[in-house]
Design a binder for these strands. Structure first.
Length: 289
DNA sequence: CACTTGACCTGTCCGC
DNA sequence: TGCGGACAGGTCAAGT
């Protein structure tokens, strides 16, 4: 569920909330994929270090430390990174928060800061992870080597998009968009939303789409991702930002999770099906295969 | 090699 | 009310 806009929203929040803070302690609870590092590495390269920057690449968050090591985090489906300050009611507003008092039973990693605040990595389904890498090793992580370009970079043009997506000419356009080696950051929500915007059926074969259709699709991808970042991402079930608050893009969604409701463009009832193994939302009139 | 499917997990919802 | 099963969907390994 956290896709590019959600991870970017968390990144921006963490940049504001934790850069400059000193980590005093790290504890890991029932998160087998997190911290395969030796305890002495955590002691030496995390404890008593300052957070120097919070970056994002694709759906991966990079929390950089003064030790020249990075806490690399993937939220996968149900991961959250929530900062709780020292003020008494710092957990979030009751109307827009999904979380209660932290830590709770989904908390996998607790990071304590020197002045008493905390960062909690929560992950109900335990698919996510947080690992420590030397800065120089981060580009060598398998995922980082394979992942495609950032779609919101101005330098990412329709020409490059078309060339990359045609490497998957024999599959469906939805499978191609979800392939992180083609381009970074699209997941199920924004695949459906941008395909609706471009009036392309998700089950269309890439080879059957014209360059013009693909150029329009890239424009819709950029539009949808930017709008979603503005709205603080989509809270479908679990996602919250670094302050424990929901995103509001889902209120602006045109097809995602709107099966049975009317298409905002033509009024036809939106359908739900399965494409590329994922729940897929389409307008049967606007999006002809 | 290109592509698809299943596994990893837990909580929620639906039908009986 | 309880219970089994389907479903949620990011990524990688395994299978076709």
């Amino acid at each position: 569920m956290p896709e590019l806009p959600e991870v970017e929203t968390v990144r921006a929040g963490l940049e504001r909330l934790i850069v400059g803070r000193i980590i005093s302690n790290v504890s890991v609870h029932d998160s087998p994929k997190s911290f395969p590092n030796s305890p002495s590495d955590v002691e030496q390269f995390v404890r008593n270090n300052v957070v120097t920057a919070v970056r994002r690449r694709a759906k991966v968050l990079l929390i950089e430390l003064s030790s020249e090591y990075t806490l690399v985090t993937h939220l996968k489906m149900t991961g959250q990174l929530v900062f709780i300050g020292t003020e008494r009611f710092g957990a979030g507003h009751p109307n827009d928060s999904l979380i209660g008092a932290l830590p709770d039973k989904s908390t996998r990693v607790s990071i304590a800061f020197a002045e008493g605040s905390h960062l909690y990595f929560n992950d109900q389904r335990k698919f996510g992870w947080m690992k420590l890498y030397p800065n120089l090793e981060v580009p060598n992580i398998d995922f980082m080597k394979k992942v495609g370009p950032e779609p919101l970079e101005d330098s990412f043009t329709a020409l490059e998009f078309t060339a990359r997506i045609r490497r998957r000419n024999n599959t469906t356009i939805k499978a191609a968009l979800l392939d992180q080696t083609v381009l970074a950051g699209i997941g199920n929500i924004y695949a459906d939303e941008s395909l609706w915007g471009a009036k392309i059926h998700p089950a269309s074969r890439v080879r059957d789409l014209s360059d013009e259709q693909l150029a329009l699709l890239l424009a819709e991808i950029k539009y949808v991702l930017k709008l979603a970042i503005e709205k603080g991402g989509s809270t479908d079930r679990n996602y919250v930002n670094a302050e424990g608050k929901r995103g509001s893009y889902i209120d602006f969604a045109r097809v995602f999770r709107r099966e049975g409701l009317e298409c905002p463009r033509c009024g036809t009832v939106i359908e739900k099906s399965k494409v590329a193994g994922r729940g897929t939302h389409t307008c049967p009139v606007c999006q002809v295969q």
